[in-house]
């Protein structure tokens, strides 16, 4: 009974995550598309090192793939001990702010779903 309840909570979180992610995807896709088709650009690229707290392999794969699918960031490399991930960012105005946003928004939700 308790296990079934946990499963449903996880399913609900997954659905909420899908909605949140689709919203992010569409909004930032439109922003990047607008930036590409207009002549002025606001791009400040950079490669950032982000520490990862996830444990299971599935969660790490999901995290890396979702980072790649979010417009404006692209997974480049990962250390073999799975502690750090290197991300190429298109609009890097504030490094610490980007790292905090990735960890609190994306990684936290994935951790709640997969672990």
């Amino acid at each position: 009974m308790r296990k079934l309840f946990g499963f449903f909570v996880r399913l609900l979180r997954l659905m909420l995550f899908v909605v949140y992610y689709l919203k992010e995807l569409v909004l930032s896709s439109l922003f990047v598309a607008w930036d590409i088709i207009t002549p002025t650009d606001y791009m400040r690229p950079g490669i950032v090192e982000v520490p990862v707290d996830l444990k299971s392999e599935t969660a790490i794969i999901a995290f890396a793939n979702l980072i790649s699918m979010t417009p404006g960031s692209l997974t480049l490399d990962m250390t073999p001990d799975k502690k750090k991930i290197y991300i190429h960012v298109m609009y890097l105005y504030d490094r610490d702010d980007f790292i905090r946003k990735t960890k609190t928004q994306l990684e936290k939700r994935i951790q709640l779903i997969f672990e």
């Binding site: 791009m43 400040r44 690229p45 950079g46 490669i47 950032v48 090192e49 890396a64 793939n65 790649s68 699918m69 692209l74 997974t75 480049l76 490399d77 290197y86 190429h88 890097l92 490094r95």
Partner: peptide, 26 residues
């Protein structure tokens, strides 16, 4: 994402020249 990730990784190892305006490359 997986295919892009693999090509990007290899491209960084090959020292493909980066464009202008890079802030940092950790």
């Amino acid at each position: 994402p997986i295919g892009t990730h693999m090509i990007a990784r290899v491209a960084h190892r090959m020292d493909v020249p980066k464009g202008e305006g890079y802030i940092m490359d950790e």
